[in-house]
Write a protein that binds this DNA or RNA. Structure first.
Length: 676
DNA sequence: GGCGCCATAAACACCC
DNA sequence: TGGGTGTTTATGGCGC
């Protein structure tokens, strides 16, 4: 019990982020402030006066709290250990942590030193303290709920006043109410300080002087009406959502509890820290909307083109006044509106989470590509290396800007990515032209690494892998422990690795059989368990120079635009569907995620980099075509033996068979040659 | 328009 | 007989 409050306090941020936290409103608010106290950009545009006022209030509160702390230090040494212990389940170690998380910055180093100098508590004393803390936490919660309730009402009043054009007089009332709330807050802080003091006195508190205060400070600063108002705007600024969508998210548990408990907890859903802790979308956009709203009293985030933009409403309002009436009547603070807000919050949270994920992924991609692009071919490919580096840099700069737009611009989903390469680097697009990715394995793009990197993507998104059947079959065989697979095992590999091959089985299975028979590199071997298929590396090596050497145009011929565009578009569509459809409708396109977008872009980047290097082959007469087609991001693979020996070296490659893993990825078997 | 590459479809044969 | 497997041929799209 004591542990619950303590651990909730400790983990309020994570609990909320996981969407499975409890209904501790105090903690939610604390979580909200937690993100901002860590230096993140404030999510709201708090007026300077409000801010100063709130800070002043808080300083006063803190001063009182300090005094109380000193007094309580003396008082509770006498009376603080009366309650009998009842529950010894909580490890004592958890107490300092939880308390530390909720400790305000009022603890001076001197006080801390005093605390540290005090005696070690007995288990009984610890239990007593835990129970005291629990009781205080309950009191705090009650106060917090009341405070939130008042804040909520105040918030609504503010909103209504803004929309109705009410002015100073009522604002004074608001200020008065605000002051009263701040006093309540102060009282709550005092209670918390008392509890804190008891813990400090018992030496349980081990905070550091500079340790940030989490729950208390948030209460003091995080709930001023202006910010609440802004948060409200933030929640209501998005335009489309469905309640049914929100119900699909487990993370609703947190706020569902709050909402069901009626008014006092409604604010807590607004306080969901996700909106402010994840990504910058919710940070900036509502701010702008708020400004525009204030500057243009007849513009409202929920009103546009004569239609109420409340999610799921779309009621026609002839003018702004009617809209305000409609807003106040149809979207008053009730369970329904709260639920809609909750859903919208979930929408925003999901988008932000996904955005954060993909940002991170994108950064990793860029880092990866940048590093790889500078590693192996720096000396022999100065010109194209520059292109590659430029690509990486440009992409890393451009993509984060283009990506975030995709969730918010579902009406033009393909724009950011279809134009992505041109944004990344126009030079690459000039030289690359249509990116054909399917046959990248021929250009020494390790199919194994590509599949490994995009494994989850391929498994989840019904996107055609950008490799030929032959390459995929070969990869399947090579991935097997014995380097041999039965046809059925090959089938299974396809279906297991690629969601795309879970449909139209007859078609692609026929193609697999066709390729197995067609390509000499696939050797059928009678085995104990029947016929198995193996890969003849010699055939690969023999075929490769024939295909690639001599005529660079052959290399380009192996590129097929539709082959790449198909999976790319599919990925984009899947991503856009994820961004726009599932969150707002019940439609689903399988289970692709926004990560598809990043994957698609990565594909595109890889393709662009391939072409960058394949093009440089054309401009590097001194190098063999095989060298030319080496993408810059090829892994630590040593130079292909054929590269060293020249494109016409056919036989000696067989001696390098142990190293063929990546070489195998270089080429594909020309059908017609195999049939000869 | 021809060529090469590839995917797709289909026919056919063989085997269990 | 039906399904799986394997082979072969035909066709079309695409880029050069």
């Amino acid at each position: 019990m004591m542990q619950e409050s303590g651990t909730e306090t400790k983990s309020n941020g994570s609990a909320i982020q996981n969407g499975s936290g409890g209904s501790n409103h105090l903690l939610e608010c604390g979580g909200l402030r937690e993100g901002r106290s860590n230096g993140e950009t404030p999510a709201v545009d708090i007026g300077a006066a409000d801010l100063a006022h709130a800070q002043q209030q808080q300083q006063q509160a803190l001063q009182v709290a300090r005094q109380l702390l000193l007094q309580q230090q003396q008082q509770q040494q006498v009376s603080g250990l009366k309650s009998p212990k009842r529950n010894d389940k909580q490890p004592a170690l958890q107490v300092p942590v939880s308390v530390a998380m909720m400790t305000p910055q009022v603890i001076t180093p001197q006080q801390m030193q005093q605390i540290l100098q005090q005696q070690v508590l007995s288990p009984q004393q610890l239990q007593v303290l835990l129970q005291q803390q629990q009781a205080l936490m309950l009191q705090q919660q009650q106060l917090q709920e009341f405070y939130k309730k008042q804040q909520e009402q105040l918030q609504l009043q503010l909103l209504q006043q803004q929309h109705a054009g009410k002015q100073p007089k009522e604002q004074q009332q608001v200020a008065t109410q605000q002051l009263a709330f701040q006093q309540q807050l102060l009282q709550m802080q005092q209670l918390q300080q008392q509890h804190l003091l008891s813990l400090q006195r018992q030496g349980l508190l081990t905070i550091q002087p500079g340790q940030p205060a989490l729950p208390l400070q948030p209460l003091a600063q995080g709930m001023i009406p202006t910010e609440l108002q802004q948060l409200w705007k933030e929640v209501t600024s998005a335009h489309t959502a469905e309640e049914t969508t929100g119900n699909n998210h487990s993370s609703l548990d947190l706020t569902t509890t709050c909402v069901s408990s009626s008014a006092p907890s409604k604010t807590s859903l607004i306080m969901n820290p996700h909106a402010s802790t994840n990504g910058q979308l919710s940070v900036h956009t509502p701010k702008r909307e708020s400004l525009s709203h204030e500057e243009h009293p007849h513009s409202h985030p929920l009103y546009g083109h004569g239609v109420c933009k409340w999610p799921g409403c779309e009621a026609v309002c002839e003018d702004f006044q009617s809209f305000l009436k409609h807003l106040n009547s149809e979207h008053a603070l009730d369970d329904r509106s709260t639920a809609q807000c909750r859903v919208q919050m979930q929408v925003v949270q999901q988008l932000e989470l996904q955005l954060a994920k993909d940002k991170e992924r994108l950064q990793a991609m860029m880092t990866h590509l940048h590093v790889k692009s500078t590693e192996p071919k720096a000396a022999p490919q100065p010109l194209n290396l520059v292109s590659s580096v430029t690509l990486s840099k440009s992409a890393s700069e451009a993509s984060p800007q283009s990506l975030p737009h995709t969730p918010t611009t579902p009406t033009a989903p393909l724009t950011p990515v279809t134009q992505g390469p041109s944004v990344i680097t126009t030079t690459s697009m000039h030289t690359v032209g249509p990116i054909r990715r399917r046959y990248s394995d021929k250009y020494n793009v390790p199919i194994s690494s590509d599949i490994a990197q995009n494994q989850e993507f391929y498994k989840n998104a019904e996107v055609r892998p950008p490799f030929t059947y032959a390459s995929l079959i070969r990869q399947a065989i090579l991935e097997s422990p014995e380097k041999q697979l039965t046809l059925n095992e090959i089938y299974n590999w396809f279906t297991r690795m690629f969601a795309y091959f879970r449909r139209n089985a007859a078609t692609w299975k026929n193609a697999v059989r066709h390729n197995l028979s067609l390509h000499k590199c696939f050797v059928r071997v009678e085995n104990v368990k029947g016929a198995v298929w193996t890969v003849d590396e010699v055939e690969f090596q023999k075929r490769r120079p024939q295909k690639i050497s001599g005529n660079p145009s052959l290399i380009k011929n192996m590129q097929s635009s539709h082959a790449y565009c198909t999976p790319l578009n599919a990925a984009l569509q899947a991503s856009m569907a994820e961004n726009s459809i599932p969150l707002y409708t019940t439609a689903s396109m399988g289970n692709p995620t926004l990560g598809n977008l990043a994957s698609a872009i990565r594909e595109e980047l890889n393709g662009a980099m391939e072409h960058t290097n394949s093009n440089e082959s054309d401009s590097s007469p001194g190098r063999s075509p095989m060298q030319a087609v080496h993408p810059v991001h090829v892994k630590e693979e040593p130079l292909d033996p054929e590269e060293a020996e020249g494109p016409l070296s056919l036989v000696t490659t067989a001696n390098h068979s142990p190293d063929f893993d990546h070489d195998r990825d270089y080429e594909d078997e020309p059908v017609n040659e195999d049939m000869e």
